[in-house]
Write a protein that binds this DNA or RNA. Structure first.
Lengths: 228, 228
DNA sequence: TTTTGTGAAAGAGTTCACAGCC
DNA sequence: GGCTGTGAACTCTTTCACAAAA
């Protein structure tokens, strides 16, 4: 979630890239994929920026992190730029992801990932409910959380999503980290306390909806159309 | 999602508060509620900050927006601070929320909100699937999206969550805005283009998971424990 | 011309550091 | 002593503005 952490950045080669840049690059790439799919060959920065809801300057700045220069006449070649961003972002190989908690939200996440993102795959699900473990769920085996350590090691998983009730989240997270997970996406509405070398991202639906509701009451907000 | 927009801020009285501050205040309040529930009477800034995963200075700075001062001896009185943050954040009355899209994710959202947050209530659901409309879902009536305008007006709804497939999201959003919605929470992975006076927040699970996966591969990241 | 890439300025947000208080 | 509130310093991010390119 939107809380900014003390500079979770990344050195790549000699450069350092902020989280904000990474997120936007991921977004640009997705848009480029759609453009390529719809047959577009070239884009200008202002077009791509509009689709990403970002200023053209911001976009160009972000692209400085990727080794590719556009042409002032044609703009950026869609497939090449997509490929270049991929080279920057992507793992050398498929990354295996675990999902903990096969409730409503967990199942929604399965549905969400069905078919897409072949580079990120949910390869194991965990729960504590006996009726949900040792089965196949959307083609993915489910285990009791106590087997986390073994399964993580066997499948080389180091990314996990947590979709369990808030009360259980911290203990689940501890177990996962203990089992070798380096990076977590947490949907439970508690802030997890974990060692600093573990990367945690929170998707806190409750907080986000409250935020949206708050700004629904704000006084007209953004720039008037005529402002220079 | 984590993309920062051109200063969506809010004037309150004479002050202006950034989105980041609002999010953190919401978070602090939730933690204070839990503390109150567990019988804690007072907290120091460093304790509350630790629970929110924020520095104590940040917390104190954020609290400057709320009209309440702590005591150097006891810290902050939990229920008073909670109440003060509420006075800052809360609507004068219950806020009605609509949910569009009653698929997997939509149902997960229903489950999520069942029982909690009495100040924010899902009072109408919309879909296009005939088998899902004109029914009750978790005690909430569902309608065909074509009825949006009437229902929104009748129920005074100005906040909505969009949980439909990406291809449908923009048109749904247009319909909602046309029906008077001022603020949106969008779960579909497209960036919505809407008039500037509409507040939009994106929860983009795909992008967020890619981000988490990216940072799982980063080289040891954060400060070494011994750094001064 | 229009567009790109980027140094430099501006703007936001966070942390430092300390006065004042209990 | 240890805590709070806050001006001032600092860091991170975005925007401006313009040279170079086609």
């Amino acid at each position: 979630m939107t809380i900014r952490r003390p500079s979770a950045q990344r050195k790549l080669g000699r450069r350092t890239v902020s989280e904000l840049v990474v997120v936007r690059l991921i977004l640009y790439r997705r848009i480029l994929r759609d453009l390529a799919f719809s047959g577009t060959r070239y884009v200008f920065s202002h077009q791509l920026a509009a689709l990403a809801d970002v200023t053209p300057e911001q976009l160009r700045r972000d692209l400085m992190n990727v080794r590719y220069e556009g042409s002032p006449t044609r703009g950026y070649e869609v497939v090449v730029l997509e490929e270049r961003i991929g080279a920057f972002l992507d793992p050398p190989t498929t990354q295996a992801v675990a999902l903990v908690g096969v409730g409503n939200l967990g199942r929604a996440l399965f549905a969400y990932f069905l078919g897409r993102r072949p580079l990120l795959q949910i390869v194991a699900a965990f729960d504590i409910d006996p009726s949900k473990v040792d089965r196949m769920i959307n083609g993915c085996p489910s285990y009791h959380i106590s087997e986390a350590r073994t399964v993580m090691r066997d499948k080389g998983i180091n990314v996990a999503m947590i979709a369990v009730p808030a009360a259980a989240a911290q203990s689940v997270a501890d177990t996962l980290v203990e089992a070798g997970v380096r990076s977590l996406l947490n949907f439970a509405d508690v802030r997890l306390r974990l060692p600093p070398d573990v990367y945690v991202e929170h998707i806190d639906i409750g907080v986000t909806l409250e935020k949206v509701a708050f700004f629904a009451r704000r006084p007209a907000a953004t720039k008037a159309p005529g402002t220079p």
